[in-house]
Computed example of a mutant assay.
Amino acid sequence: MRSLEQKKLLTIITAHAFKNIVTEALKAREVGGYTVVDATGVGAFGVQSGALDSDSNVLIYVILSEARLNLLLEDMDALMTRSYRLKVIVTDISILPRKKSEGGVSG
């Protein structure tokens, strides 16, 4: 069986209007993949019903190494400093890699 690989899960919650700004920041850091999911709910900015782009959020999920995470956190912090509405959550995760690594160690 493959060994689990330790990674970080970066979850970004932002307004639908800011989705492209965040995904462009990911592309600029050469992030190979991410998942975007439409989200509704209630929070500090009121009801996000999803009826209009102006009242809908997205969740952006990125799985990456800690070294790459730190670079992205700098970018997200810069956006937040410029008053972009973001919630940034970091979680330690273990993934089952697609390939077995040589010597039993995943990299």
Rank of each mutant, 00 (worst) to 15 (best):
T40F: 09
K7G: 02
K7H: 07
L79E: 07
R82S: 15
S3K: 09
T81A: 14
I13G: 02
I93K: 07
K8H: 09
V42Q: 08
L64H: 08
I89T: 14
L9N: 13
T40Q: 06
S3V: 11
S49K: 02
I89Q: 15
R82W: 02
E5N: 05
V31F: 06
E24P: 02
R82E: 15
D53L: 00
K99E: 15
G33K: 10
L9M: 14
K7W: 03
G104D: 12
T81G: 04
E24A: 14
K100E: 14
N70P: 00
T35N: 06
D38M: 01
I63P: 00
A25V: 09
S65P: 01
S101P: 07
G103V: 09
I60Q: 09
A78I: 04
Q6G: 05
P97V: 04
N57Q: 08
T14L: 02
A51E: 00
N70W: 03
V37C: 05
V58C: 01
K19V: 06
L96N: 15
N57R: 06
V22D: 02
L79Q: 03
S65D: 14
T11G: 06
V90N: 10
N57F: 04
G107H: 10
I89K: 12
K100R: 11
L69V: 13
D53T: 08
E102T: 08
I63W: 07
D55N: 14
H16F: 09
V36C: 04
V90R: 06
T23W: 02
A67Y: 04
A44D: 13
V58I: 03
D53H: 03
I13P: 01
L9T: 06
M76I: 08
V90G: 11
R85C: 03
A17P: 00
E30S: 13
D75I: 04
K27V: 13
S106Q: 13
D55R: 03
F45L: 05
S83A: 15
K19S: 08
A28E: 15
T11D: 11
A78Q: 07
V31E: 02
D92C: 04
N20M: 12
L26C: 10
A17K: 05
V47S: 02
E66K: 05
L69Q: 11
K100Q: 13
Q48D: 01
V31P: 04
